[in-house]
């Protein structure tokens, strides 16, 4: 799986493409009401085809987590539409959201591996929770959950442990496994590797690549272009609540069009390839500020 390059996979968006797993159209999210409110997202349009991995990159406050939360119904959209698995969910109330979520089409992996698992529940209990919510019998749920522990390269011995007894990397992998147990069509990952050290980061990234190969659609949110670059088919760049650039991963990295994207690529620390020098970055910053 390490050799497959992003381009080798069907982008899926062109001619005769199947219906997207996720289609966001003209999305706007506002926090606060009236004049004191501010919009966290403005006119964001993005779609994710079946099997596609879209990387969403943006810095703190760019609205990337808001995008994820809006797609999951955790925050309300002020305008625009969101379609999940072909279903228009924009106007959904709590009950219909719950019914939709219970089908397990979309799952979410949180940034903070320390707090994304209930400290009082064993790994097994956390892992099977989405299945129990669906109404699956406990014994069957446990059987099914074991298989997914395998997928994230964790041994079944961990099932009886509490999150406090696992390392950060192990916990994040459990969180990924929990997101997978309902066999979702789309997994949204919010900074899944940012809190991990490099060995664990590599491990989780490898798991994501395997998922992608298995045909699960992924939305990979991160502030780090490096970790997205090797995983995503397409990259979407969020800057101050707006989607400034969307394109094939290699294109965005090698030929960034927007000033911010150019600064982003030019700022990424690299070993050999000098992406930009200080004066170039200075000039880009000035253009962005002005």
């Amino acid at each position: 799986m390490t050799t497959a390059s992003p381009e080798a996979r069907p982008a899926g968006k062109e001619a005769g493409a199947p219906a997207p797993v996720l289609a966001v159209e003209g999305l706007e999210v506002r926090y606060g009401r009236g004049r004191r409110g501010r919009s966290a997202l403005r006119d964001v349009s993005l779609s994710v085809a079946p099997g596609e991995t879209v990387g969403v990159i943006g810095e703190t406050g760019s609205g990337k987590s808001t995008l994820a939360r809006a797609v999951l119904g955790l925050v309300r959209a002020s305008a625009g539409s969101i379609r999940v698995g072909g279903e228009e969910v924009t106007g959904y109330g709590n009950r219909r959201w719950r019914a939709l979520r219970r089908r397990g089409i979309v799952q979410y992996v949180f940034q903070d591996p320390l707090r994304s698992l209930d400290p009082d529940l064993t790994i097994e209990d956390s892992l099977i929770e989405p299945l129990l919510i669906q109404g699956v019998e406990r014994t069957e749920a446990v059987d099914r959950a074991r298989a997914f522990l395998d997928r994230v390269h964790l041994s079944a011995e961990l099932l009886g442990r509490l999150p406090g007894e696992l390392s950060g990397g192990q916990r994040q992998r459990v969180a990924v496994a929990r997101a997978l147990v309902t066999e979702p069509a789309l997994v949204i990952l919010d900074e899944p590797v940012s809190a991990l050290d490099s060995a664990n980061r590599v491990q989780v990234l490898e798991i994501l690549k395997e998922l992608r190969a298995a045909g699960t659609s992924l939305v990979f949110i991160s502030h780090d272009l490096g970790s997205i670059a090797g995983t995503a088919d397409r990259i979407a760049v969020l800057y101050r609540g707006e989607l400034v650039e969307v394109g094939a991963a290699r294109d965005v990295i090698n030929h960034p069009r927007h000033v911010y994207t150019r600064l982003l690529v030019g700022s990424a620390p690299t070993l050999h390839a000098r992406t930009a020098d200080r004066s170039e970055r200075e000039a880009l910053r000035a253009r962005l500020a002005g």
Binding site: V202, L225, A229, I253, N254, T270, L271, T275
Partner: peptide
């Protein structure tokens, strides 16, 4: 870095 960073692409 080379595998999971930008270097590979650049």
């Amino acid at each position: 870095h080379e595998q999971y960073g930008l270097d590979k692409f650049l």
